[in-house]
Simulated scan of single mutants.
Amino acid sequence: MDASQPQDAGHTASDPAQPDPAEKFSATHRRGERGPDETIWQGGYSAVDQSGSFIILGLITIGLIAASIFFPPMIIISLIAIPVLWIIQGIRVWWIKLGVAYELTNRRFIHESGVINRTTDRIEVIDVDDVTIEQGIMDRMFNVGTIKITSSDRTHPELRLHGIKDVRKVALMIDDARQAERDRRGVYIESV
């Protein structure tokens, strides 16, 4: 045997009977699981969640314009303050929207956060214990809200998804994916 060509005892790289180590430990080849994950829903932060902030900013704008009419020296302050406030709010919403992304598959809930440093984390849907919807008055008017996921995941036992459009529909999708995965694996939760 040539020392420049080391071989593993008994098998070569082209041996079809031996699985590739990368395939052996990939999520799609684990015992009892079928194929790759199927995406059920993808989403992120909806700027509609900021409707209350935009309404307050609109009222401030109207107040500054009214103050400029009754007190002419306020015109300069208003001409500077109004665009600056709207630009700051626009950048704030853009930053929040850019900073989060969610994906629900048939087996996992994947959430990404951060703009400069991106963190990606996964929660197995089978580990989800409860899905709760939180909505204020403005949220109900615009069909957005916060979904609170309680799970047995150690890194995120409670995860809040803010600014979700069609919040009830998305919460139901998460709950249905959880139940389908539990049924598929034969996991049943007894009532206490």
Rank of each mutant, 00 (worst) to 15 (best):
S4P: 01
S4K: 05
Q5C: 11
D8Y: 08
H11A: 03
A13H: 10
S14Y: 03
D15Q: 10
P16L: 03
P16K: 04
Q18H: 14
P19A: 06
P19M: 12
K24A: 15
F25N: 06
F25V: 09
F25Y: 14
S26V: 07
H29W: 02
R30I: 09
G32I: 05
E33I: 12
G35H: 05
P36W: 08
D37K: 02
E38M: 11
I40T: 05
G44H: 01
Y45S: 01
S46K: 00
A47N: 15
Q50F: 13
G52D: 13
I55Y: 12
G58W: 03
T61G: 00
I62M: 00
L64N: 09
I65R: 02
I69Y: 00
F70K: 15
F71C: 10
F71E: 11
P73T: 02
P73R: 09
M74H: 06
M74L: 14
M74P: 05
M74F: 15
I75C: 04
I77C: 11
S78G: 12
S78F: 07
L79G: 11
I82P: 07
V84P: 04
W86Y: 13
I88L: 05
Q89T: 02
G90N: 01
I91K: 00
V93C: 01
W94E: 08
W95T: 05
W95K: 06
W95E: 10
W95P: 00
W95L: 14
I96M: 05
Y102R: 01
E103R: 15
N106P: 09
N106G: 04
E112A: 08
S113K: 10
G114A: 00
N117K: 12
T119A: 05
T120K: 10
D121Y: 08
D121L: 09
R122F: 15
I123T: 04
E124W: 10
V125K: 04
V128W: 08
D129A: 14
V131W: 00
T132A: 15
I133E: 03
I133F: 00
Q135D: 12
Q135I: 07
M138P: 11
M138G: 10
M141G: 10
F142D: 05
V144L: 08
G145C: 05
G145F: 02
T146N: 00
I147E: 02
I147T: 02
T150R: 09
R154M: 03
H156R: 11
E158N: 12
L159Y: 03
R160L: 09
I164Y: 05
I164P: 08
K165A: 12
K165M: 07
D166C: 00
D166G: 01
A171S: 03
A171D: 02
M173H: 08
D176K: 08
A177F: 02
R178Q: 04
Q179E: 08
A180Q: 07
E181S: 07
R182T: 03
D183F: 11
R185N: 10
V187H: 10
Y188L: 09
E190W: 11
E190F: 08
E190A: 12
V192T: 02
